[in-house]
Amino acid sequence: MQFLGTLSVRLFNAVVLLLVVLVLNFTLMHLAPGDVADTIAQSMGGADQEVLDEIRRDYGLDQPFFVQLGRYIGRVLHFDLGQSYFFNEPVTKLILERLPATLLLVITAQVLALVLGVILGVYSARKPNGIVSHFVTFLALFGYSAPVFWTGILLLIAFSLKIPLFPVAGMRDVTVDGGFWAHFWDVARHLVLPMITLSSIFLALYSRLSRATMMETLGSDYIRTAKAKGLTNRQVVYKHALKNSLSPVITLAGLQFSAVISGAVLVETVFSWPGLGTLAFQSIIARDTPTILGILFFSALVVIVGNLLTDLALRLVDPRVGGRK
């Protein structure tokens, strides 16, 4: 019952937070200089004020701010994110079409960073003065300092141009024929470089945190008691210490999910990956306000859901969370 009560409070807070994000995003977009009328006028080579006013009337931009905000919130409550000015399609359809590509990139990059980060962190914690430990330190420094788009460009130059092992851009090769496995390996080859690029900074973060938490856990009293009982180092590390040291890493992974999504915008642009990041970049250039707002709203929704799932994962990994006995 306590868990259900906590979950209900979290869901209510999530709904309130989504409404606040919705209002803030719309307000900031409204305050930003320029609108779709200016973009259309530029593409036409210029337009007089009457044409601009007519365009704004067609798109409802001549209405007062609170009228526009009220209409937008009403549409969102009916699961309608509006019509794209630039693509001339429903925003929901555009997001759902690009969503699988972004989820594939983000989830694989997050899983790669999390698994390798924990493995490197645990191994380096067992031998804090070894080569792996120094490598983890170097990896963390490189991951923090290297911009994700710079890493992507270097990987493109190295493994697509100099050593042509992987495709330069895109998600699929339209010339590939065959069944499921042929298309599967084609997508996998296109995915390798973007996945490594996006996971680089988070791999450094998780490995460093795993190393620190594991070293702290290995110095605990109950670990010394386990060793005194005659348990092997492997049993002590993987049966007792690892489970308790994972909680901070899982928490950080959930909190960093928003950073993964924002980083995907740069990675998708560099590799021409057909996901939400590329869609966001195109919409920003075209001043396509409904599409930008839809992507921001969806990103906020993903982050909030990710945080809720993180809380649930912590309750499963560490029974002390939430007061369970």
Rank of each mutant, 00 (worst) to 15 (best):
R10N: 09
R208P: 00
T108R: 06
D62L: 04
N307G: 10
V265S: 01
E216P: 04
I304V: 15
L255S: 10
G179C: 12
L231N: 11
F66L: 15
N129E: 08
F3H: 10
L293S: 05
A204D: 02
K229C: 12
S262F: 11
E97I: 13
L28D: 09
A241Q: 02
D311C: 07
I196L: 15
S272R: 08
P128L: 01
A113P: 01
F298K: 08
G306Y: 02
T151Y: 00
V187L: 11
Y206C: 00
N233S: 15
Q235V: 10
G179R: 10
L314S: 04
Q282D: 15
G60V: 07
T175V: 13
A241V: 03
G323D: 05
I196F: 06
D35R: 08
A140K: 02
V303Y: 07
V265Q: 01
Q2C: 09
F281T: 13
I261Q: 01
L28N: 10
L11M: 12
W181Y: 14
D311T: 08
N25E: 11
W150E: 01
Q83K: 05
L104E: 13
G60R: 09
L165K: 05
V132T: 13
N307I: 09
F66W: 13
Y206D: 00
L165Q: 04
A253D: 02
F298T: 13
L31H: 09
A169R: 06
L31C: 10
E50Y: 11
S262Q: 08
L242T: 03
A264M: 07
T27F: 15
S247M: 12
V249L: 07
A146R: 00
Y72W: 14
F79E: 06
A140C: 05
D311H: 08
F142Q: 02
T39E: 14
Q256P: 00
V187C: 06
V111P: 02
A188F: 15
L61A: 05
V249I: 15
R315M: 15
H240A: 06
A226Y: 07
E54H: 12
S210W: 01
